[in-house]
Nucleic acid binder design. Structure first.
Lengths: 211, 211
DNA sequence: GACGGCCTCCCCCGGATGGGAGAGGGGGCA
DNA sequence: TGCCCCCTCTCCCATCCGGGGGAGGCCGTC
């Protein structure tokens, strides 16, 4: 398969750390079968460059200024549903990866992956084959088994994580305190937590919330 | 100052992301006045390589497997109090940086810093001049003004963040529930929070706890 | 139409939590 | 020695929180 010399894999890198971009670029450009055609430091730039270059693969950091990885994935898939996106991030507990994958990203890989794994992920995605690191695959299975929170519950959870009281949450969401309590109780049940503080801890661990 | 050709700055890089090491190495080795003499992927390796090479500067990631940046700083300063360490991390809300700086690290810089800033930080530290990014300096001032938690309070805070009840905390720390409550109340006062959940949120924001 | 999920609201109640105030012992520091 | 901080423990009390229910309305799908 490395014998296909007719065309190099054209790659765009999007990551807000110059250092990481340098490392990836060096790694990619050393390969005979791929090359970096552009680099972006934020989500907006990634979109612009994607439309300019139409790369074979775009490597996307999940956490970026201006527009995060998920937003970029959504927009890119609107522009070109056949786009091949490889999500790259630091933390493997991130809930967003599932969102990205379900929105059409072809692969997911951790930043601390060894070089060969990163390169083979890029090659896989370039050929339209999905690539998911084993740890993520395992988490996906776990996740399927567990009940997921509704939109409203996520709204409430976010406020709970900020340390708001039920009364305060009710005020901010324009619902009664009783309803807020109902949501909180539901969250506790689904996350298998005894207190709101534990729920926040669990939510953090599962990447349901950030910041 | 770039005219001092008699000796290159000898640098060790310690970071658990191969990609980041590649990026830094490429950047450093392009400079006429510095070179990378070794790379480490975890804290233990960093220590071993430090003793082998006695570099002019060691660039240290705060979050590393086996032994984190702070532990490496402490150990290195025991071995050689004159060692020049540059701490590098992703997140600027991290409380550990102050620990590192007070334990003798010479500089601190964010991973998303532009290339020139990283290079000048390495040069500064190599000349034994402190280097601290402006955002960190600002935070340090803020921090001085605010009351800091005691050791015991941090113990309690960690358990609170895990979602433990006062009773549970008391059991784990072998104190009475009343005492646990006293600590929690003190934490709330110092962090200016109304509830334990808000305290956890504030603590996260200030980098007092992790995970 | 019937079913089920989601959001909204309601009830009761015991235990946990937070606010206020006090107090003793130990260790460090002037 | 005296002072101050930290850790420990105590008591009181209003409030919040979490567990147990139930229930109506609005959506979809089957």
């Amino acid at each position: 398969m490395a014998a296909e010399l007719h065309k190099k894999i054209r790659v765009i890198l999007a990551d807000d750390h110059p250092v990481v971009r340098d490392g990836l670029a060096a790694m990619v450009n050393q390969q005979p079968d791929m090359e970096v055609v552009a680099e972006a430091g934020d989500g907006d730039a990634a979109l612009t460059l994607f439309e300019q270059h139409h790369p074979d693969v775009m490597v996307l950091d999940l956490r970026m200024p201006k527009r995060d990885g998920l937003a970029v994935v959504q927009r890119v898939m609107e522009i070109n549903p056949k786009a091949r996106l490889l999500i790259m991030t630091t933390y493997d507990g991130d809930e967003d990866i599932f969102q990205c994958l379900s929105h059409g990203a072809k692969g997911y890989i951790l930043k601390d992956a060894p070089r060969p794994e990163i390169l083979s992920a890029i090659r896989a995605v370039s050929e339209d084959r999905p690539y998911t690191s084993s740890t993520v695959a395992a988490k996906a299975l776990q996740r399927m088994a567990k009940p997921s929170l509704t939109e409203r519950e996520l709204d409430v959870l976010e406020l709970v994580a900020q340390g708001r009281s039920n009364k305060d949450i009710a005020r901010r969401l324009s619902i009664t305190e009783g309803t807020a309590k109902t949501h909180v109780k539901s969250i506790l049940t689904k996350l298998d937590a005894i207190s709101r503080t534990e729920a926040v801890a669990v939510a953090h661990k599962r990447g349901l919330i950030r910041l």
